Simulated scan of single mutants.
Amino acid sequence: MQSGLYDFVPILIQVAFSAVFVFGTILASNFLGPKHKASRKSANFECGLDSIGNARTPFAIKYFLVAILFVLFDIEIVFMYPWAVNYQEIGISGLLKMGGFIIVLLIGYLYIVKRKALDWEK
Score class of each variant (00 low, 15 high):
F70K: 02
S51Y: 06
I26L: 15
F17N: 10
S51D: 05
G48Q: 03
I92A: 11
F21H: 02
L72C: 01
T25I: 12
V9R: 01
R56K: 14
R40P: 00
L65A: 09
Q88G: 02
G24S: 10
R40E: 15
F64V: 09
N86G: 04
W120S: 09
I107R: 00
L65C: 09
G24H: 03
C47E: 11
K122P: 03
Y87Q: 10
L95V: 07
A38T: 14
E76R: 01
G99Y: 06
F73E: 06
L105D: 09
A28P: 00
L96C: 04
V113W: 05
R56I: 12
C47P: 00
Y81I: 15
Y81N: 13
I52K: 08
Y111W: 15
M98N: 03
M80F: 10
S3Y: 12
Q14A: 15
I107V: 15
Y63D: 05
V104W: 03
R40Y: 13
I68N: 02
V104F: 12
I26T: 07
A38W: 03
P58I: 02
F45Q: 06
K114M: 02
I13Q: 06
I77E: 13
L118I: 07
A84G: 14
D7T: 13
L72D: 00
I112Q: 00
I61H: 10
G94N: 01
V85W: 08
I107P: 04
C47S: 11
L32C: 07
D74C: 05
I112M: 11
L49G: 00
F59P: 00
V85T: 10
K62C: 03
L12C: 08
A60W: 05
I77S: 09
N44I: 07
S3E: 09
L32S: 07
L32R: 12
A55W: 10
G4H: 03
I102S: 08
L5T: 11
A16I: 13
A84E: 03
F17S: 11
Q14H: 10
Q2E: 12
V20R: 05
P82C: 05
V9T: 13
E76G: 14
G99V: 09
I103A: 15
R40F: 15
P82T: 03
M98F: 10
I92W: 13
N86M: 09
A60Y: 08
V71C: 14
Q14Y: 06
F21N: 04
G100Q: 01
F23M: 11
M1H: 01
S93D: 08
F59N: 08
Y87A: 09
I52R: 09
K122D: 13
K35E: 02
V85L: 12
A16V: 11
C47H: 08
F101P: 00
A60M: 06
K122F: 06
M98R: 01
Y81Q: 10
R56S: 14
N44S: 14
A67S: 12
L65F: 04
F31M: 15
G53P: 00
Y111H: 11
T57Q: 11
G108R: 00
A16F: 12
I103C: 12
G108C: 11
G48F: 01
T25E: 05
L27S: 06
I75Y: 10
G99H: 03
I90N: 01
G24W: 05
G91D: 01
V113R: 10
A60V: 07
P82Q: 08
T25H: 07
L72E: 06
F73I: 02
